[in-house]
Amino acid sequence: MSTRPTLVFVHGAFADSSGWSSTLADLDGRGFPVLAVPNQLRGLTADADQVRSVLATIEGPVVLVGHSYGGAVIGEAARGADNVRALVFVAAYALDEGESIATVLDPETYPGGLLGPDTTVVRPFGEQDGDLYITEDDFATVFAADVGAARSRLMYLTQRPLSLSAFGGTAAADPAWRSLPCWALVAEEDNAIPPAGQRWMAERAGATISSTTSSHAVMVSRPEAVTATVLAAAESVG
């Protein structure tokens, strides 16, 4: 008798685990073990180590799901985590060795991303680091253009910042997507990560790709598309 995989979700920057709520409820109702890991957003290596420490406590196979910066994290975290059987990138970064989320997509090749100095504010901490937030005026457009105004406002108010260290953190050698089956969901109206860039990274990773008409907050505005993508990965494991 096959064992259903545990479905582990890692959120990205400017968000928290509550963004996965609809998909978590759906999958839980279908009888899958699910877990949403709070991403620390402090640095790529440290964040991946923290997720990997959680994976080490899970018995049986795992499907690891990442949104946005969380995609970069799962590509690192799954390396050396022998129970991870598949990766799912949701409007996400999939980095190769030496790349960071700041450098992986050339804006001339992949235009349209609105996340940058004009739409963010840095709140310094320590001597050399800072926290990056999306500004009040730009949050809805950049992150949640197809989310209702009230929900988008709450997402802005509760956004978790990304440290500059995490923004510039580079991936190590042998990302996990080189050795694991991958799925990817492209958000076709994403103003944070250009959709063409998402697709290029997913193709490079050899992912099975689907798409949906959505903003960057696809897990909030199109949770059914996220659920379908995760289920496809889970079925390949089970």
Rank of each mutant, 00 (worst) to 15 (best):
L180N: 04
D47S: 07
D49L: 06
H216M: 07
A77P: 05
Q50A: 15
G206P: 14
E108P: 14
V63F: 11
T212W: 05
A81P: 07
G197D: 02
M219R: 02
D129T: 09
W177P: 03
T213G: 14
A166C: 09
A36D: 08
L154W: 12
P223I: 04
A171I: 00
R160D: 10
W177Y: 11
G126K: 13
V218M: 03
R151S: 14
M1I: 11
S165W: 09
T109L: 13
A56K: 12
A171Y: 04
A145P: 11
W177V: 00
A86G: 10
P194V: 03
L180K: 07
I209W: 13
G168K: 11
V51Q: 05
S221V: 02
D47R: 00
F89V: 04
R178H: 15
Y133G: 09
A233C: 07
S22R: 01
A187G: 07
A225W: 00
A207F: 07
A140E: 05
D47E: 04
P117Q: 04
V65H: 06
A166Y: 07
D138I: 02
W20F: 15
A91G: 12
W20D: 11
D96Q: 11
I134G: 08
T213F: 14
S68G: 13
G70R: 01
G126R: 14
S215N: 05
V218A: 06
S100R: 07
T213H: 14
L185H: 03
V73Y: 07
D49N: 14
N39W: 01
L164R: 10
M155E: 05
T141P: 15
R79L: 08
A184P: 03
N83Q: 09
Y156W: 15
S214W: 05
D129Y: 15
E108S: 14
W177M: 02
Y133C: 08
E203V: 06
I74R: 03
V142W: 00
S210E: 12
G197V: 02
L164M: 13
N83E: 04
A48C: 12
S2D: 13
A232Q: 06
L55Q: 05
D106C: 10
V88D: 01
I134F: 09
S100A: 10
V54W: 12
A228C: 10
S100Y: 09
A196F: 12
R199A: 07
A145K: 04
S2G: 10
E76K: 02
D129S: 13
E189V: 05
L105N: 03
A36C: 12
L154F: 14
S53Y: 14
L164P: 00
P181N: 08
M219F: 14
P175E: 01
R85E: 02
A13W: 00
R222G: 02
D28V: 08
M1T: 15
S18N: 11
D190S: 07
S236K: 08
A78L: 13
A94L: 06
E97V: 09
L55A: 11
S22C: 08
H11F: 08
Q159Y: 12
S165E: 13
E136L: 04
A202V: 01
V186D: 06
L35Q: 10
V226P: 08
A228V: 00
H216I: 02
T3L: 15
W177S: 02
A205R: 01
Q50H: 15
